[in-house]
Simulated assay, not measured.
Amino acid sequence: MPTPDPSRTHTITSGYSVSDDSYFLELVDVADGRTLLIATVPDEDPAREPTISVDPRLQPTEIPYAVMRWFMQQVEEEIATVRAWMRLRPELVTLIHALRQEYCGAVDDAGFPAVLARVRAAVPPADVTTVIEAAFHRTPADFGIPDRV
């Protein structure tokens, strides 16, 4: 699901590239649908650095400063999120990684009960919220479930 910037002139789409073992965030110009920038955040190897790339086939495009700052803040948050959960216990990392790959970091309200049941079956109750937050950038409360499940 695209995330619009405050001016609604650009959006970020995100996903997971299995072949690159990386999450990506794409800055898209709403007016013409062009992807202007791609941030790649590796999750398998903490030694691999995140990168920002531009499609060399694109004509030079001006990106407003406020939009660029907003995009970079989103990239910074993604890096912090990925790096944080990579330091959890190995069994949690394995589950979070699987969920993020399977759901590309997003699950809708209708699909959440099945995900919650899967997480509850796999980890101790104290770790459920941590796994949900790391996998989906949302808390169980965002899905109408008490914050600490």
Rank of each mutant, 00 (worst) to 15 (best):
R118F: 07
A121Y: 08
V128W: 00
P124S: 12
W85V: 10
T3I: 15
H97V: 11
M86G: 11
D142R: 01
P64G: 08
L92H: 13
H137T: 09
V82H: 00
Y23W: 12
Y16D: 12
V123C: 02
L88W: 09
E78C: 12
H97W: 05
T13K: 09
T40F: 02
I96C: 10
P125K: 06
F136Y: 03
E77C: 08
R87S: 14
M68S: 07
M1I: 04
R34A: 08
F143V: 01
S53G: 05
P125I: 01
P56D: 11
S14W: 11
V131C: 09
R118Y: 03
D142H: 02
Y23I: 05
D142K: 01
E102H: 11
M1E: 13
L58H: 11
F71M: 00
C104R: 13
V149I: 14
S17R: 09
Q59C: 01
P146A: 12
Q59E: 14
T139P: 02
V131K: 06
H97D: 15
E133C: 13
I12D: 00
L27T: 04
A47M: 07
D55G: 07
G105C: 05
I132Q: 13
P50Y: 02
T40R: 11
Y16K: 06
A117Q: 15
S7H: 09
L27H: 03
Q59G: 10
T9C: 06
F112D: 03
I96G: 09
T3A: 08
D45L: 01
L37P: 02
G105S: 02
L99C: 04
M86L: 09
I63C: 08
